[in-house]
C-alpha cells in the first residue's frame, strides 16, 4: 500500500471532478434554496417584523430540504455504472471511501449553501447580528445533515425509486440538528449568546464525521449484497 495521503488525495479529487463535470447537480439544490426562500415573502406578505421573526426557521428548513435533495443520488450513479462494486472490493477500507465521498459532497453542496445564506437572510429582513451564527450553524449543520442523508442514500441505493423512502427515513433524524441550528440563529438575532447550541451542533458534527461512515459502509454492503 502506498502513502495513504496520496490515496486520499486521488479519491477526493475524483469525487470533486465527477461532481464538477455535472454542474446542474451542484446548481439545482442551490437554486432550490434560493427560490423557495424567495417564495416566503410572497406567501407571508412583506412585513419586515414577521419575516425577521421567521427567517432563522425558514432558512434552516429550506437548507435542510436542499441537502436532502442533493443527497438522493449520492451513491446511485456509482451503483449504476459499477464503480461501487470496485469500491466494495477495494483493499482501501470502505470507511475511508465513504468519508471522502460525503466530505466531497458537502464541499459542493452544504458549503455553497452556507455561503449563499447571508444573501437570503437579508432578503428575509433578518437582523445582521444573526449572520455569523447563521453561517456557523449552517456550516456545521449541513455537514451533519449530509452524513445523515448519506446513510439513508446508502440504504436506498438498490431501490429504483428511493427518493420518497429516503425522505421518510432521514427527515426525523434531521430534527436535532434543526432544533439546535435554528435556536443558535434565533438567539443571535435576539442579541443573546448562541455558543451553547453551536457547541452542541459542533459535537454532533464531530460525532457524525467519525461514526456515520461506519453506518454508510454497512448500509452499502447490505444494499449491494443481493
Amino acid at each position: 500500500m502506498s502513502d495513504p495521503r496520496i490515496i486520499w488525495n486521488v479519491l477526493l479529487r475524483r469525487e470533486l471532478l465527477v461532481s464538477l463535470r455535472r454542474r446542474s447537480e451542484i446548481a439545482n439544490p442551490l437554486f432550490f434554496f434560493l427560490i423557495v426562500c424567495a417564495l416566503f415573502p410572497l406567501g407571508l406578505g412583506p412585513s419586515p417584523a414577521l419575516l425577521a421573526g421567521m427567517a432563522p426557521g425558514i432558512l434552516w428548513i429550506v437548507a435542510l430540504l436542499a441537502v436532502l435533495m442533493a443527497s438522493d443520488g449520492l451513491f446511485r450513479s456509482d451503483y449504476d455504472d459499477g464503480t461501487l462494486e470496485q469500491v466494495l472490493l477495494s483493499p482501501v477500507p470502505l470507511y475511508v471511501t465513504s468519508l471522502v465521498k460525503v466530505l466531497a459532497h458537502w464541499l459542493l453542496s452544504g458549503l455553497p449553501l452556507t455561503l449563499l445564506s447571508p444573501l437570503l437572510a437579508m432578503m428575509l429582513q433578518m437582523p445582521p447580528q444573526g449572520i455569523p451564527a447563521l453561517l456557523a450553524s449552517l456550516a456545521l449543520g449541513t455537514l451533519v445533515l449530509s452524513f445523515i442523508a448519506a446513510i439513508g442514500a446508502a440504504l436506498t441505493v438498490g431501490l429504483k425509486r428511493g427518493g420518497v423512502l429516503l425522505s421518510l427515513l432521514v427527515l426525523p433524524l434531521f430534527v436535532p440538528a434543526l432544533i439546535f441550528g435554528s435556536a443558535a440563529v434565533q438567539r443571535a438575532v435576539l442579541g443573546m449568546d448562541s455558543s451553547a447550541p453551536l457547541a452542541l451542533l459542533g459535537a454532533m458534527a464531530i460525532m457524525f464525521v467519525l461514526v456515520a461512515p461506519l453506518a454508510i459502509a454497512g448500509a452499502l454492503r447490505v444494499s449491494h449484497d443481493q
Binding site: 479519491l11 475524483r14 465527477v18 450513479s77 470496485q86 483493499p91
Partner: peptide, 19 residues
C-alpha cells in the same frame, strides 16, 4: 468507468482504490 472522466482519471482512481 465514470463517463464524465477521461481514461487517465478513471484509471488513476481505480489504481488508488487498489491501494
Amino acid at each position: 468507468l465514470k463517463l464524465s472522466l477521461t481514461p487517465l482519471e478513471n484509471l488513476n482512481w481505480l489504481a488508488a482504490l487498489n491501494g
